[in-house]
Each structure stands twice: as structure tokens, then as C-alpha cells.
Design a protein around this nucleic acid. Structure first.
Lengths: 341, 341
DNA sequence: CTGTTAGCGCTTTCAA
DNA sequence: TTGAAAGCGCTAACAG
């Protein structure tokens, strides 16, 4: 009563008991009223809903989760790097999950060392499932089975462990890029690969080298970058210093391709693609900007995120679904940063 | 290799009761052992910790939250647009919150209409606080007071309601840009503003127009874009069609500035900044790429996110802290997309 | 269809 | 320092 009559501000959130009392029914009736398939008489429901609205009642998600074992929360694990390159992925994932009445608990990892701490939090919060775009060790993947928490890997593959995953086919995409470069007559290749601890980075590097080796090129210089713009520029300078006369640069992602293009133009006064062809991977938005028009492979982000979410939901609803890998083909974006055949 | 009886895999997570039983103590002793300042004898603690480790026990966050009223979860609200432009902000926020032992419940809003649904979820999950980089109405902000949930607005300002907020000083930054353009002798300005429903967009537009009016320019053409690359290009084409002879374009953000630069070069064959000066705002990474080198105002993202997080934590720990607004000055990035004085 | 009754796993008095 | 006991707000049998 010492409240300056700001209206009946409840000091405490209304509970199902408050609603029950005010509606003259039992607490479990209120519970059923808000439950998906609760059997309740239309008249009773109406009365309860009216009172609930007046009291601003909402079921407490913590209590629901505690008793039912379902929290309607999913953890999304993203490594900082991924986060910066694919904001779109995170956006899509949260949107699709939200559509399915699921909340996102976000974990952004800076280093591999943080994974164990993050998993600790994941278990504690009893999430219904996890989508991981961060690298997990086999032992860590095993923990998910132990804890019986469904897991879907995004653009990651377990080394040995079995786990559901959705990936863009890096190998096929990279192979196609190399073939198109070969068809256009390129003969002096250089590779700016991603960091060694990146799954897709290694996949792409390996695929490029394999296809080049098959074409008789087995001394292709490789440098590594960190998937960043500056990494691409530095990579290019390193390659050009070691091996002048390169005519095609294969980059681990678009960001590095863009850095390489800028360095080629600015530092070496080259014309792209006449003097030098540069290709990337991912099909991110900046890659299509007219200053770059990067020749690349576009990941089907929409379909991939949709697949990841539905695979996860499926596993949450039916915990006996077997491990499955869904591989999506990327789409060649011709662009204008490379001569391709 | 099927696991040869990988040991007693608990069918159920270990609870504090399990630990208590195995350690020969009471359940409340276990609770105290894991509580920050729980009074417990060193020997007892040791024994409990040993057993807990063996059983893989971890306190259940739901139960903790339900009884203690603290969930150690904070909701972060981001509108899709913001999300795409500032992945860095989200990364910084989650990192800093994680450092303070707080989890992030992420909500990505596509439209204003979704806000009420999102807030509903926020209340249900009993988060300790909210950081919002999405626009909230006064009525919505009022709900936070009613629910007694601390709120910090990020680059947003309430119309009338009182609320804590951290912002980059758009007006000051934009004013500085305009002054530098004036000093360099520009006389024919055009503005590509952000969408009308963006707080920072309107702030910047208004500041630019005010400063230009003060300098005697009161017929400055304004078009609107959606903060996107294509929006910038379209905006430029529109402006040039209506008013040929412009010599300076003021864009609502870097992304549109980049789009405008590309359109100016590609479509109008202009040399930037000799034929036309273009300025942006934000200081995002792509703006510094050598193809663009956008003249802009860099937001001090690190300091702003740090401020947002500490303001929120402070309000969570002490619910009587008054509303405070922290305004950060942006830093001019000279770039090379505009002649400035 | 409705109410009664047990808990979910934990924190928090309160005595001992 | 320790344990007993009382809930936090809800779901889920089970009777009626």
C-alpha cells in the first residue's frame, strides 16, 4: 500500500495458483488450460483465460522445464571466426528455431579451450539440443551421447565419432573451381588456405591440391591465412614473393579472396582477372559487391540452416533417430575475379 | 569398437541427493559446497567435491533459478538489420557476458511486430536482465519496470520513458563529418538516409540537415535506403537523377556508402573522391578495405559493449540504480572516399 | 472434465 | 558447521 497507487502492480509474478484461486478452479486446471492438448471444458477454459489475462499470468518456463524435462531451449555454439563470417547463418538459425517455438542460448567461443566450459553450461541449463558450428573433439561429441542431448554439427565433421551433421560439400565445390580454372588455361597456381584447425579450410585445401595433382601440378605453393581480409592480402604477398608468375590464386574463403584482390591491385598493380585469377568460397554478400565480384562457391545457407534445425528437432522429438549426414552442393558464382572455362 | 561397458552410464543426471548419499552428508551440505559463500568444513568440502567429480554432478540451473530467482541468463534483442551490420557487437556482448558468468538468450527480431511475442518469452524465462539493440516503444519499456527486469538499450533511445542506454553520439559524429565536408569546399550535398524507423538513422539525418541548414544549405535532397549495399546504390542513382551536379553524398551508414561508391564508379564513371565525396557512418570492417576506404565515424564498439554489460550487471545486482545514459563519441576515420578539410 | 497428490532439483531458514 | 524441512511454480499420473 506504500506504492503511490501506480495501479495494482503485482509485487510478484502471478502463478497458476493465483489464477486458479481467482477463477475458482484447481491449479491443475490452469496448467491444462495452457498445455497443448489439455482436456478442458470450453467454458472453464474461457474463464481461466480471462482471469489469466487480467493477472498477466504466464507459465514460468523454469518450472515447466524442471518438471517436464523440456526447456524449449537449444544451444548454438559458434566460434568467433565463424560468427564474423556468417552472421547470416546465426540469423537464419535463430529465426527458424524461434518459428518452432524454441529459444536460442548462444555461446560464442574464442578458442578451442573454452569448449569444455561451454559444454558444462550447456548441461547445466538442460537445453533440449545443440547446434554446433564450433569444432568439437570426438570425446566432446561422446559427451552428448552420455548426456543424451541431441547434437547437429554445422559445417563440421567429427573425426571418428558418429554425429548428425549438415555440411556444404567443400570438396566438390573446390574441385569444380579448380576444374574451371584449368579449363581456362591457368597453369601457375597458388593457394591461400585457411587455418589448420578449420575443418572446411582443410577440406578445401585438400580438394584443391588433389585436383591439381590429378592434373599434373604437384608443386603448388600453399600459404595459410586466418580467413580474414588482411590474411588474404598477406597471403598473396607471400605467394608472389616466393613464386612470381602465378596466374591463379585459390583462397580458402571469400574474405581472403577479397583481401587478395585488393592486395593484387594495390600492391602489385595487377588487373583482375586479366593478370591474375582469384577465387574464393562461401558466396557471402561482400563477395558480390561490384568492386570484387568474386568467383566463388555459394553455400546454400537457407537450405542448410533449415536442414540443421529440422534434423535437431527431429532428434529432440525422437531420440532414436540415427546419425545422419546431409551434404549440400554449393553453387558456382561466376563473378569476375577469375577467368574460368 | 563398441564400448566394453563404458562404466556405469547414469540413466539420469546425478542430483545433489545422489552426491549427498554417496558422500554421507546431507543434501544441503552439497548445496552449500557449490554455493559461493557457503559455510562448510574444508574436509567435508573435499569429500563432497571428490564424489561430485566421480558422479559428474553439476547443479541444475533450472532448479537453481526457480528457487533463487537468479538465472544468470540475460536476453539480447537484436533486429535483423542490426545483426547483419554489427556481428561484432553481438560477439563482444556475449563474450563480455560470458566472462561475468552470464548466459545469453538471443532473440533476433525481423519486424517490430514481433517485439511483444519476444518480450513474452523473456518474462517466461525469468532472465536477470535484457540488452536491447532493437527498438522498443515506451509502453514496452514500461513493461520492464512492471516486471522489474533491468534493461539497457544499445544505440537506441526511449522516446519518453526513462531507461538506461548506451549510444554512440550520432549527432556529434554526423556534424563533424558535415563540417569537414564544408571545410573542403563542397557545396552540393545529397543525403542517403536510413529507414525512418531507425533511431540512429533519423538522428544522423537530422544532424546532417541541421548542420547544413546552419551553413545556409536548406534545400538538401534526401532519399532513404534500408542500410544495405543495394540501398546505397539505388539511393545514389535516385539522387543523381534528381539533382545532377552533387559533389558530396552523406550516407546513413557504411554499407550504403559502399553501395553508393560502387554505383558512382560503375554506373556514373565517377572518380571518388575527385568527382564526388561520399561519407558513411559506423566504421565497420569492410569500410576500411582498400577498394573503399570510406570516410566515416567509427563507433567505439568495445567501450560501448563494455559499458552496456557493466550497466546491466550493476542494475541486476542493485535494482535501485537510476536510469543513466552513456554517450560515446565516435572517431573520425579519414579514409579516402571524401575530400575533407 | 476436474481436483488431488506427488514430486522435478535446488536454496534457504532454522535448530541442533 | 551441519541437517531437517519448507517450498520455488509447474506437470503428470490418478481418482472421482
Amino acid at each position: 500500500m506504500d506504492q503511490p497507487a501506480k495501479s495494482t502492480q503485482p509485487l510478484r509474478r502471478a502463478t497458476s495458483y493465483d489464477v486458479a484461486r481467482a477463477a475458482g478452479v484447481s491449479q491443475s486446471a490452469v496448467s491444462r488450460c495452457f498445455a497443448p492438448g489439455g482436456s478442458i471444458a470450453p467454458a472453464t477454459r474461457k474463464r481461466i483465460e480471462k482471469v489469466a489475462a487480467e493477472l498477466g499470468y504466464r507459465p514460468n518456463a523454469l518450472a515447466q522445464g524442471l518438471i517436464s524435462g523440456r526447456t524449449n531451449m537449444v544451444a548454438v555454439l559458434i566460434s568467433s571466426a565463424t560468427n564474423l563470417y556468417y552472421p547470416e547463418v546465426l540469423e537464419e538459425l535463430t529465426r527458424r528455431l524461434t518459428e518452432r517455438d524454441t529459444r536460442v542460448l548462444l555461446f560464442s567461443l574464442r578458442s578451442e579451450g573454452e569448449v569444455d566450459d561451454v559444454l558444462d553450461q550447456v548441461w547445466r541449463h538442460s537445453v533440449d539440443g545443440v547446434i554446433s558450428a564450433a569444432r568439437l573433439s570426438d570425446a566432446q561429441i561422446q559427451l552428448f551421447e552420455d548426456h543424451r542431448v541431441p547434437l547437429v554439427l554445422y559445417n563440421r565433421m567429427p573425426a571418428k565419432a558418429r554425429a548428425a551433421s549438415v555440411c556444404c560439400d567443400s570438396a566438390a565445390g573446390e574441385t569444380e573451381l579448380v576444374e574451371r580454372l584449368l579449363a581456362a588455361g591457368h597453369r601457375n597456381f597458388g593457394i591461400i588456405a585457411g587455418p589448420a584447425d578449420s575443418y572446411v579450410g582443410e577440406e578445401r585445401r585438400r580438394a584443391a591440391l588433389d585436383r591439381l595433382a590429378a592434373a599434373g601440378f604437384d608443386k603448388v605453393p600453399v600459404v595459410r591465412g586466418d580467413f580474414s581480409y588482411t590474411g588474404g592480402g598477406e597471403g598473396l604477398r607471400q605467394l608472389m614473393a616466393d613464386q612470381p608468375g602465378l596466374d591463379a590464386i585459390i583462397c580458402g574463403n571469400d574474405q581472403m579472396a577479397i583481401g587478395a584482390i585488393d592486395a593484387a591491385r594495390e600492391h602489385f598493380k595487377l588487373t583482375i582477372p586479366d593478370d591474375l585469377s582469384i577465387v574464393g568460397f562461401d558466396g557471402t554478400a561482400p563477395a558480390s559487391w561490384s568492386s570484387y565480384r568474386v568467383t566463388s562457391i555459394r553455400q546454400p545457407v537457407r537450405r542448410m540452416t533449415e536442414a540443421a534445425v529440422s534434423m535437431l528437432i527431429e532428434r529432440i522429438e525422437n531420440d532414436t533417430v540415427s546419425a545422419e549426414r546431409r551434404l549440400f552442393a554449393g553453387e558456382l558464382v561466376a563473378g569476375a575475379s577469375a577467368r574460368i572455362g
